[in-house]
Simulated scan of single mutants.
Amino acid sequence: MQVTLYREAKPYEAAEHYDMRCLRLQGKEATATDTIWIGLSHLLPGAHTSLKDASVEKIYIVLAGEVTIETQDETVTLGYLDSCRLAPGEARALSNRTNAPASVLLAMPT
């Protein structure tokens, strides 16, 4: 078993993420996972990412606040425990358009 305690989770830098603090909970340098990694991002009010695609699918689950996810085709605002899946190659941008902090869990293949 490999445990990551939240208080000991290591931050990581994500390119084109603005006013966000990201923590690695599982996978990559945190633990030896075979297929996925899990990250937790805290978004300050006004935080956002660029509209960018990835070669792998992504799953987002909102843990606190509201996070708006924009693709080239649609925009949706997710709240507590709402989730979405983005297909490989589907560009996305995340933003916190509120005056309160938000947190989102990210799961994606290694």
Rank of each mutant, 00 (worst) to 15 (best):
T33A: 15
T33R: 14
G79S: 11
L43F: 06
K52Y: 11
Q72F: 12
V62Y: 04
E66A: 09
L63P: 00
D82H: 10
D53W: 04
E70R: 07
L78C: 01
Q26F: 15
D73C: 03
D34H: 14
L43S: 01
K28R: 04
I38C: 10
E74I: 09
D73L: 13
S41K: 02
L51D: 12
P45I: 06
K58T: 06
A32V: 05
L40G: 05
L78F: 12
D53Q: 09
V62A: 07
V62C: 04
L78A: 00
L78M: 02
I38L: 13
A32C: 03
L40Q: 13
S41Q: 09
I61K: 05
E66H: 09
A30F: 05
E29Q: 05
I36L: 15
E66G: 03
L78Q: 00
E57G: 11
A47C: 07
L78W: 01
S41H: 06
I69T: 08
Y80R: 13
S41G: 07
G65E: 06
S55G: 08
Q72N: 15
V62M: 04
L44V: 08
D34S: 13
I69E: 12
T68P: 01
D53L: 04
I36P: 01
E29C: 03
I59S: 05
E57R: 08
A30R: 07
A64T: 09
I36D: 11
G27Y: 02
S55Y: 07
E57Y: 09
V67R: 00
G79K: 03
T71S: 13
E74S: 14
G79R: 05
D53K: 02
G39W: 00
E70G: 04
T75Y: 02
